[in-house]
Amino acid sequence: MADKIDRNLSHSTVHVTLSTAAKPMRYLYYPGCSLEGTAVEYDLATRALMQALDIDVIDVAGWTCCGATAASGVSRLLALSLAARNLALAEAMHSDCDLLVPCSACYLNLQRAAHAMREEPQTRAAVNRILADEHLSVTGTVRVRHILDVLARDVGADTIASHVRRPLNGQTIAPYYGCQCLRPYAVFDDPQAPASMSPLIRAVGAEVLPWTMGPRCCGGAHMTTHMHAGMDLTGAILAAAKDADAIATVCPMCQINLDGFQKKIARHRGAVLETTVVYLPQLLGLAMGLGPHAVGLQRNLSVTASFKNALRSLEASV
């Protein structure tokens, strides 16, 4: 499957001049709750990156929580309604733009809701009843796109490469995908052997760590409810990334699991696990010449001194 997708990707890049008219790229934007809180740097970096790429992002006005994992753990209809509310808001903006979502959990919830709205007329009717109070209605036709999908397929590694100002030469990056941008909806990558991040990392001059942990589960909310199980999963990922200079993530939950508990996990496993963990847009942004502050790097919980040094020396060499 990876093979198939790679082929598609290469086609779109090779002949891109033939296909796309010179229309500016534009997306509706759903940041999600985390990006206002624990993942505020993800939001900063995404917006900065898009701007640098000349891509318009338009916030979905009045967005609310997608329901996260919690709602589906309580009521399916509630979960769908919470997500669908946002779809309805996006659809109401009457744009033919896709909906860009950086948070994988939000992406899955919105994707699931869109599927349910399209494929389950009864559910759609129920949700529309619920939304009717706010004079909203949903069809599920807006295309929900994960930021990695957009970067890999719409923007493409070539475009990124053409914007690179400060190549991250000599840096080895572990691409970490997590679960929910890949599964259960395998939209843009192989859900078990994903590869879409690799060309992007290479495009900014860095090397890709060969590993198999990319699509493995970080434990999600276990870190709160079943801490030991969560530390086992996250710990395995951190341990596998020991040869990388940084882990690139595309999900706030993964990010906080990987960067927020490193000391605790190190104690749990009895091993030193200090690794830089950054969001992919941060990584790309840095290479494209955005300053550390512009991508919110100061807010990351785990940026090692050596990574910072490396950044500084790279900057100096430009």
Binding site: Q180, R183, P184, A186, C218, G219, G220, H222, T225, H226
Partner: peptide
């Protein structure tokens, strides 16, 4: 405790 240990990674559903 099994069901509470599901971290919604969706390998199974896949």
């Amino acid at each position: 405790q099994t069901f509470t240990l599901c971290s919604s990674c969706y390998y199974c559903s896949l």
